[in-house]
Design a protein around this nucleic acid. Sequence first.
DNA 1: ACAGAATCCGTAAGCGCTTACATTTCTCTC
DNA 2: GAGAGAAATGTAAGCGCTTACGGATTCTGT
Lengths: 173, 173
Amino acid sequence: MASEDTSSDSNSGDYPRASGAAALGARLRRLSERIDRDAGRLYAALDVRFEQRWFGVLNQLVLHGPRSVGDLAAALGVTHVAVSQVRQALVAEGLVAEDRDPRDGRSRVLRLTDDGEALARRLAPAWDALSAAAVELDAEARDVLAALDRLEAALDRSSILERSRRILDSARP
Amino acid sequence: MASEDTSSDSNSGDYPRASGAAALGARLRRLSERIDRDAGRLYAALDVRFEQRWFGVLNQLVLHGPRSVGDLAAALGVTHVAVSQVRQALVAEGLVAEDRDPRDGRSRVLRLTDDGEALARRLAPAWDALSAAAVELDAEARDVLAALDRLEAALDRSSILERSRRILDSARP
DNA sequence: ACAGAATCCGTAAGCGCTTACATTTCTCTC
DNA sequence: GAGAGAAATGTAAGCGCTTACGGATTCTGT
């Protein structure tokens, strides 16, 4: 390496190693993609037309019956837009139907169609297997979920932004 | 609820709770977005035109000097496409320049411009602060990073897909 | 009763990655 | 020294979310 080494003053020592937050974010993203992709492959292996991102909405409808877009968003902890996009796909697939709420014309209530119910029954074993795999992984990795809980709690106490600002301010009096 | 309860046999007990893998993936994604967004806000608060996703490439160039797209992708653990997209943005911003490798005409070697060096020096304190914040968080959440290490190792041993398939097969003899 | 605010939802565009495919250049074998 | 195959990079499109914005409906205060 070191063709002619970073010519200028890059070795003056004031550059950070700085892999910290960026690396943490990237690792989390990578892991989530890995899990989502594997779930998708499982559905493909079972020869079922189903996408992992549909799971949240479909599962809520299975567990709790018809629900509005907003309620689903709140239950899943995502924006109504995300639910609306899934809704569009699910309606196009014929798995879900939407009715206007008679008591509130703004609201669209989603419900499973017969096809949707059938697909949910068909996928139940796969969902169970994925769930069991997650439990197994959590045990094997010795409480990742608990660690993520602690991370979320710590971020709720004070965000990365707040922490960084404090550190930045205290470093420069 | 139970308006008329999911008519058919949804209460025959074969629906899964099944929040497992989906929830894990979603939580990881959410956390990574949270961290990336905060980093972006820190740059904005400092009144610097910089996006978090540029960090990996820029930091590599700062630390190791000129590098090809492929080398950067390997070092960062992403695809060459991701690096290429960042390259395009960085060149458009005037922070990075690209030369053809005289020894290999296929290869584009990226290097910091003077503006790029200046920006890196300007952002160094912020990067240090983000890094320190990540260390602080890791300590406060009691070794999340170690837990993520264990999770990655477990996934390397056997993916979610493999685990799910095994569980699925063993459940249905 | 009715104007203005609040709420519910939809579309558009972007982010930071990915896979799939095309293009250019190099390298190796005959 | 020519041509097959491999390697480096680019472009296009998609994924699963987000913010920004706008349309339609309902609620609130006077």
